[in-house]
Amino acid sequence: MTAPPTVRAATREDRSAIAAIYNAALAERASTFETRPRTPEDIDAWLGKRHPVLVAEENGSVIAYASTSAYSPRECYAGIADFSIYVAPRARGRDVGRHLMEVLLKEAEAAGFHKLTSRVFATNVRSRALLGRLGFREVGVHEKHASLDGVWHDVVVVEKLLLANVR
């Protein structure tokens, strides 16, 4: 068993690695409806705000990232964050995602969020299993949520309460 990766806040220096990891997932067509590759400049908009963005690093190389973003622009939902997590193909199957998500949960709680939520392709059984082990609840299914390359996909809505911030 190898040591867990180092997890830390993402910086501007990580932008290219984050974009490359996302673009690898985009090419696989199994976890995002987006079709436009991301550039390092696209990642700039994610950094330095209330919403945590983390990277997992191994031997000085970024091998995964997790990001949070606003669930809704409405003020009443300010305590909820959407999240995404992507692991580089070379780092999958080694518990990198679990380590990264454990830190993301702590960082989101420290940032004052009371809930994390996301939508996961229904066919993405590995991600769904990981999130289940971390205490995420599958809320329901959005049927035919979006079309990707002419094929409709269902997504499973997941959520987890961050109890320290539920008052």
Rank of each mutant, 00 (worst) to 15 (best):
R137W: 01
S127E: 08
G135K: 09
F113G: 14
H114K: 12
R92E: 09
G97R: 03
V125Y: 00
V96R: 12
L130T: 00
K106T: 02
V87W: 00
E107H: 12
G93T: 04
L116I: 07
T123K: 15
N124R: 10
A88G: 13
R92G: 07
H114W: 08
P89A: 10
M101Y: 05
R90G: 06
G140T: 07
T117N: 14
A122S: 15
A111R: 11
G140D: 02
A122P: 09
G112P: 10
G112Y: 06
T123H: 12
F113N: 13
V96A: 07
R90L: 06
G97M: 02
F136T: 02
T123Y: 05
R137G: 08
A110L: 06
A110I: 01
V139Y: 01
V139S: 11
E107R: 14
H99A: 15
R92S: 06
E138M: 02
R119W: 08
A110S: 12
A111E: 09
R137P: 12
S118W: 01
E138I: 01
L104Y: 01
V96F: 00
A122G: 12
K115M: 09
G97T: 00
A91S: 14
V103Q: 15
S127H: 03
H99P: 10
V87Q: 09
M101S: 15
L130C: 12
D95S: 12
A129T: 10
R94N: 11
A129V: 03
L100M: 11
E138Y: 01
V139W: 08
L116V: 00
F113A: 09
L131W: 00
A88D: 11
V120R: 08
R90M: 03
